[in-house]
Amino acid sequence: MVIKKVSIIGLGALGILFGHQLAKKMPRADLRIIADQNRIQRYQQNGVFCNGECCDFNYVTPEEPCEPADLLIMAVKFNGLKDAIQSVQKHVGENTIILSLLNGITSEEIIGEIYGMDKILYSVAQGMDAVKVGNQLTYDHMGMICFGESETGLISERVNVVTEFFEQMEVPYKVDSDMLTRLWGKFMLNVGVNQTVAVFESNYGEVQQEGPARSKMISAMKEVISLSEKAGVQLTEEDLDYWLGVLGTLSPDGKPSMAQDVEAKRISEVELFSGTVVKLGKRFGVPTPINQELYHRIKLIENRYTMIG
């Protein structure tokens, strides 16, 4: 199998970032950006920009007949996943490979329930410092897509197919034979950095240096380590150090998605982060006071602007 046709749903930071890279390397008709008619009209009228370059994307509606994608990239926010799963129906065929770039630890299973886990490769996007304001995306570090099978130690033919494609497209990537640990590790980082930077109304720089914000972030991350032990994943202090190292590579002026949501007065993915941690804590009998605090503080922030709105 060779990947020729690619479909992407979701033009947030990740969709634009990797869509723009693919668009520079692929025939225009072979890269489809799935969106409803209203969004397409807005994208076409206002443009979509990546580091100042206008993205010349090929937009298709969910209803439009098409060949199934060889590779389908899900890049929506978690609260848009249910609708996205319905919208990509015509793009999923017998041999379609699906990569979910969503945050959290549950999207692969949710997508797999509908289209089959045999189509899913576990994946994580990490190391990018993209900031999206309106229709403008800017970044210093593109980061990479880490992917692999759910089964530890397995490097499958599907993994090799995606590897070859990313090589051709010059998309930074890493094949990981222990994707569940990486998935939980990225979740741990998001639980810490997304929520802390949002609550402190700051940026990566604030949590890259010693101080109250960094201490709060690390405490929230350590609660995920405790949960992982109960879930059979076994994150360690070494994993914590690795992800703090990833954080250290990002532009100090950059901000994670939740901080950008709070600035724009949008509902955030707090349910996906501390919401999930608190629920798992209750299930496993693990105390999660830091995440309970972060959840409460972010909900208060959101309530202020939803009441005003």
Rank of each mutant, 00 (worst) to 15 (best):
G245Y: 10
F49S: 10
Y204N: 15
V191L: 04
Q292W: 05
A69C: 09
V2S: 14
F200W: 09
D30P: 06
T288P: 04
Q89V: 00
L22Y: 09
K265M: 13
A69L: 08
G275C: 03
S251R: 07
L72S: 06
G10M: 01
V262R: 13
Q86K: 14
S7G: 15
S7I: 12
N58Y: 07
G185Y: 11
N79Y: 14
I301Y: 15
I73Y: 00
E269F: 12
N135I: 01
K265N: 14
D241K: 15
T249F: 02
E113V: 00
D36A: 05
K279T: 12
F273D: 12
A231R: 07
V92E: 01
M144Y: 06
D36E: 12
K265S: 14
G15I: 04
K222E: 09
E53S: 13
D83G: 00
E167C: 13
T61C: 08
N51T: 12
E302M: 10
K222Y: 04
M221Y: 06
A231H: 05
Q89E: 13
D178I: 09
R158V: 00
V270P: 10
F273Y: 14
T236A: 08
K24D: 11
N291L: 01
V197E: 03
E113I: 00
T138K: 12
E164M: 00
L280A: 08
D261R: 07
G275F: 06
I97R: 02
V124M: 07
F18Q: 08
R28I: 06
N79R: 12
V277W: 01
A130R: 08
P172A: 01
I155A: 09
G205S: 06
T106M: 12
E149Y: 04
Q44P: 07
I73S: 03
A213Y: 06
L300I: 08
E157M: 07
S251M: 07
G192I: 03
T276L: 12
A213E: 06
M221N: 01
R28S: 10
Y305C: 04
R304I: 11
Q168R: 07
M26A: 13
I34D: 02
V162I: 11
L300F: 04
M258Y: 00
Q208R: 00
Q41S: 15
L101A: 03
F284M: 05
G104D: 08
A13H: 05
A231S: 06
A130N: 04
L247K: 02
G143L: 05
D140W: 00
D36Y: 12
S274A: 09
T306V: 15
P287S: 15
F187I: 03
Q89F: 00
C146D: 00
I97M: 03
K5E: 15
L101Y: 08
L121D: 00
G153D: 03
E63W: 08
P65L: 10
V161T: 14
V161M: 13
C146S: 14
R39A: 01
A220S: 01
V262D: 08
A259M: 11
V131Q: 04
V270L: 13
L183C: 09
L22W: 11
Q44G: 10
L154D: 13
V76M: 02
H296A: 15
R158P: 01
K174R: 15
F78R: 13
D56E: 08
G281V: 10
V262E: 11
T61L: 09
S100R: 03
I298M: 05
G134F: 11
I33P: 14
E237F: 06
N160Q: 14
M74R: 02
F49V: 08
